[in-house]
Design a protein around this nucleic acid. Structure first.
Length: 465
DNA sequence: ATGTCC
């Protein structure tokens, strides 16, 4: 007989609050009511929710009932400042109200020092995607985001540009052989890499429990907007930082992050932060940890490990493909866009959170992709203080995933790919080019923040699905 | 973003 299994979302559906009562209820039902059907169990839980006082004496269900009653509240209570710190908005005309509102709220946090909103911004959990927030000695796990260390990595090969068309099937096979996509995807055999020997994996208890799966996911790409693609890199003019002769090259561009490792770190430490610091409901995702306290330092260490792990994932992919092609890249450009850094902003040491924002310090290289058919850009930062030395991390979504699925037709999608001459492996309607803003508009909105030193035009794209 | 589990 199937064992009873209740999920948090089942309880949310019948009106359970976002409190620990959820885990108590799941625990009690799965232990003592495991022979009940899901429907029967939910009915009982619903009754308890409506009249918890009636169940207080019940030796088993009383545990759930008690969890509904007000308890001694833990953690320190904080309120938002009346006025937020001022922040610059780039490309305001194309930024949705949701993202703006989230940024205004973040600016009112007691630890906020400065902020900025990038032209590809859209709403996320806590800080908007495309949001930059500098804080005073505090790190906000959801200011970094769930996919810690998510990044772009570009290898430029000295391969004749015409090969991409001429040997399309060869490059397609490379992508198929060397990458693995999918939400829970992992390899059967773990890849050897020094990152997996880091002491940190043993020193922090949470990380110890995540090591085995992280190892099997090393070099995988995950899902969503992540991709690995071949395309053309074009450089028009010598740049002393990029150091590539003008010309057209074959490029390998990848976009992915730290897989389940980063997600688990993010969720664990945001829970910890939320239990230590209680914030008004509308900003409860923005709970922070102080870098003076043990938990904050631990998050910082774990976040940095996840960032290095994300980098290693790209390295594995690029090394595999390069060695299969029998080539060494002439140049590699790489940048995180979900991370927190210690930086000096206007003379003051701050923690800069970039959640879906490209670091754009003076002469710092980065990659800003368009869409699967639109060009991307190799950029060099100008270190503009108003943007907290940041830029957009892509075109940004114009439609939500569900909106895209409902409004874009398979036919129009295929036609667009054909028109652009792009071969797509995997990839769903929710990632169709129409779901994204126009990258040229986004680049115009931030032309003061970065200089374009090269372009990338996608040709063979692999995504999940 | 992640095989979500508070």
């Amino acid at each position: 007989m199937a064992k009873l299994q209740i999920r948090g979302k089942d309880l949310r559906k019948i009106g359970y609050p976002e409190t620990p009562v959820v885990s108590v209820a799941i625990g009690v039902m799965e232990q003592y009511y495991k022979r009940h059907s899901l429907e029967a169990a939910l009915q009982i839980l619903k009754d308890i929710m409506l009249t918890p006082a009636d169940y207080l004496e019940d030796p088993v269900l009383g545990k759930v009932a008690k969890a509904f009653l007000p308890e001694k509240e833990e953690g320190v209570e904080y309120s938002l400042n009346r006025d937020g710190v001022p922040f610059s908005i780039f490309g305001a005309g194309d930024i949705g109200e949701g993202a703006l509102h989230q940024m205004y709220l973040a600016a009112k946090l007691p630890v906020a020092v400065a902020g900025a909103l990038m032209p590809d911004a859209h709403s996320g959990y806590g800080l908007p995607i495309g949001g930059v927030l500098a804080t005073d000695n505090a790190v906000i796990p959801y200011g970094v985001g769930v996919d810690i260390g998510c990044r772009m990595c570009l290898s430029v090969f000295d391969i004749p540009a015409g090969d991409l068309d001429r040997k399309e099937s060869l490059f397609t096979r490379e992508l198929e052989a060397a990458t693995l996509f999918g939400s829970g995807a992992q390899f059967k055999e773990a890849e050897d890499h020094p990152i997996m020997d880091r002491k940190t994996f043993q020193e922090i208890r949470l990380l110890r429990s995540l090591h085995a799966r992280a190892w099997k996911q090393l070099g995988t790409s995950g899902s969503g907007n992540h991709f690995v693609e071949f395309g053309w890199v074009e450089v028009n003019q010598w740049d002393p930082v990029l150091k590539l002769d003008p010309g057209c090259y074959v490029g390998l561009l990848s976009h992915s992050g730290s897989r389940s490792l980063g997600a688990n770190i993010a969720n664990y430490y945001t829970r910890l932060a939320r239990s230590k610091r209680r914030l008004p409901q509308e900003v409860n995702h923005l709970a922070w940890l102080s870098l003076d306290e043990e938990e904050g330092m631990e998050y910082w260490t774990a976040m940095n490990l996840a960032g290095d792990y994300a980098s290693a994932c790209h390295e594995v992919i690029h090394t595999r493909i390069a060695s299969s092609l029998g080539r060494k890249p002439m140049r590699t450009v790489e940048n995180h866009h979900n991370f927190a850094w210690r930086e000096i902003h206007e003379g003051k040491a701050v923690i800069v959170h970039r959640k879906g924002a490209t670091p754009a310090g003076k002469d710092v290289l980065g990659i800003i992709p368009g869409s699967m058919t639109a060009p991307g850009f190799i950029v060099k930062g100008r270190g503009v203080p108003a943007s907290i030395s940041s830029a957009a991390h892509g075109a940004g979504r114009r439609m939500s995933r569900s909106q895209a699925m409902a409004s874009i037709s398979e036919h129009a999608f295929k036609e667009e790919l054909a028109k652009s001459g792009v071969r797509l492996i995997g990839g769903g309607l929710d990632e169709a080019p129409f779901a994204y803003k126009d990258i040229e508009t986004v680049m115009r909105a931030q032309q003061g923040l970065v200089d374009v030193v090269g372009t990338f035009r996608p040709r063979i794209v692999r995504m999940d699905g």
